[in-house]
Design a binder for these strands. Structure first.
Length: 485
RNA sequence: GUCCCCAUCGUCUAGCCCGGUCUAGGACACCUCCCUUUCACGGAGAAAACCAGGGUUCGAAUCCCUGUGGGGACGCCA
């Protein structure tokens, strides 16, 4: 079992692209096979610098190990660098622009065996032909003009595949089931471009064969061109791999995931504070389900359960609110130390309040859906000057003056406390309220705003305890001053 | 235009292959309630779907056909 992820470095993969990688990886690992990374950079014009590094870095972030893929030297030739280098392997190079002679030889072989021919039609001619066909409302496509012209090798040319006349084909797709074509609308496709680069069709077939890929997993937008690939395998006399055409992921508007529709890249999700484990889990469950009612799975569980026949054939929508829920679950499962480490990636400055952070951690984890929410939740632990949400407590029946005097009493109470344990704080403030004939709801919120600044915080006494007695007293003082200003 | 794919709550899905156990199950989101000092967590509950029409059958979400809707492909892009 050998699967591969074969992205083209034409931009920054959105999350749907990575899901294809996850599926291929999970299948290979399920059967103890290899997962290969191959870079399909045959379109020089659309090539984007940094795209390969991006793929490498993101795969590493998700914890997807690559068994074979472009190593250091290959990457250097491409001018890409990454801290996460694949091992290389015995089927290299794994970057298509470094494999040009192989494609050329393959195309030559096809010409010799009569399955392909050279064509010197210019783009302008093809353009014109196309326009005419469209005007006549015909299926657009190359007429086959050069099929019998014997274009000499030294003239600029492309190599085209000779599509059989009205081929009838069928294939057992691992997810779609039996797919058959009755006269597919395909004309002689180009295999080798005039710049010597192969097109996708030639390159995938040659590489998947040479790299001994057993299962080709790709988005189902490829299904319509599978006949070309099937016919190519036949022409070469090679056995075709198993194809698995995966349903696509749609955006919340029901449109195909794309930058334009706000499709997130894994990088963006990471910047929003999502955990790679949560994203992986969530995305695996779009288009695949192990059955049953469990939804949160470790990677190992997913690998153990994964199977192609449980991949859905309908496309699915990427619903961020569900990802948020799942991310929250993963955050809650983190140990305090792990949690600290993850948050630190967003705000290194928490180093200065590490012990306080750790102490409050369970309460923080319980409240967060993403890591990005944490910094604002712990602002009260820092010395940063934050304005108090007085409007939450100062209302028509509670004047600034009465609030100030209550806070002064609280300050005396707290300063005279024999300890500063959570239980002691809790007990004495409650007793204080009772003695004054006040509900806790009239005391706690006031104390909260005075010391923690905002109305939504971790539990009050836990927070005060972490803050420390001196700091609490200082803040009450400050609050009183603010009120009487 | 031609070819291909798809179709269960708003969303992710279970069930479909091997018809009855489906008055269609779970989860997210929404709403209500409980817990509660806030915000959350947690718990309980409500509401919410088999695209339509024909067959086959004693019986169809499940099998067949047609229609409709959605998506994709038809490039010297992948």
């Amino acid at each position: 079992m050998r699967t591969r992820f074969a992205p083209s470095p034409t931009g920054f993969q959105h999350i749907g692209g990575f899901r294809t990688a996850f599926f291929a990886w999970a299948l290979a690992k399920h059967f103890g096979g290899e997962f290969i990374l191959r870079i399909e950079d045959t379109d020089q014009e659309r090539k984007v610098e940094g795209a390969v590094s991006f793929i490498l870095d993101e795969l590493a972030w998700f914890g997807i190990e690559i068994d074979e893929g472009p190593g250091k030297e290959e990457l250097e030739k491409l001018g890409e660098r990454s801290a996460h280098l694949p091992k290389g392997g015995r089927h290299g190079p794994y970057i298509q622009s470094l494999r040009l002679p192989k494609y050329k030889a393959a195309a030559q072989k096809l010409i010799e065996t009569g399955f392909a021919y050279r064509c010197d039609c210019t783009p302008e001619m093809l353009e014109k032909e196309r326009a005419e066909q469209m005007a006549r409302r015909e299926v657009p496509g190359y007429s086959g003009y050069c099929r019998t012209r014997e274009v000499p090798e030294d003239k600029p040319h492309v190599v085209r595949f000779k599509m059989p006349h009205k081929p009838k084909l069928s294939m057992q797709d691992a997810v779609k089931g039996l797919v058959s074509w009755d006269n597919p609308p395909l004309r002689d496709p180009v295999l080798l471009k005039s710049d010597g680069f192969p097109t996708y069709h030639l390159a995938v077939v040659v590489d998947d064969h040479e790299m001994e890929i057993t299962h080709v997993m790709r988005g189902d937008e490829w299904l319509p061109s599978t006949p070309i690939h099937l016919l190519l395998y036949q022409a070469f006399g090679w056995e075709a791999p198993v194809f698995a055409h995966l349903p696509v992921i749609l955006g919340e508007d029901g449109k195909k995931l794309s930058k334009r529709h706000g499709a997130p890249t894994s990088r963006e999700l990471r910047e929003k504070g999502f955990l790679p484990e949560a994203i992986f889990n969530f995305v695996m469950l779009i288009g695949w389900s192990p059955g049953g009612e469990q939804e949160v799975f470790t990677k190992d569980e997913i690998v153990r359960l994964f199977s192609l026949d449980r991949v859905n054939n309908a496309s699915g929508v990427f619903l961020q609110s569900k990802l948020e829920w799942m991310n929250g679950k993963y955050i809650r499962d983190l140990t305090s130390e792990e949690f600290y480490k993850r948050v630190r990636e967003f705000s290194p400055e928490i180093d200065s309040i590490k012990s306080k952070f750790l102490e409050l951690s369970p309460h923080l984890q319980e409240r967060a859906k993403t890591l990005l929410e944490i910094p604002s939740m712990i602002e009260f632990l820092t010395d940063k000057k934050i304005s108090r949400e007085w409007d939450k407590v100062i209302k028509k029946d509670v004047t600034k003056e009465s609030a100030a005097s209550l806070l002064n009493e609280l300050k005396v109470l707290i300063s005279e406390l024999s300890g500063f344990e959570i239980e002691i704080l809790d007990k004495s403030v409650r007793e204080f309220a009772e003695k004054k004939g006040l509900k806790v709801g009239a005391v706690f919120p006031l104390l909260r705003i005075a010391t923690l600044y905002t109305s939504a915080t971790p539990p009050l006494f836990e927070s005060l305890h972490v803050l420390g007695k001196d700091q609490v007293l200082r803040r009450i003082d400050e609050a009183v001053r603010e009120l009487l200003l």
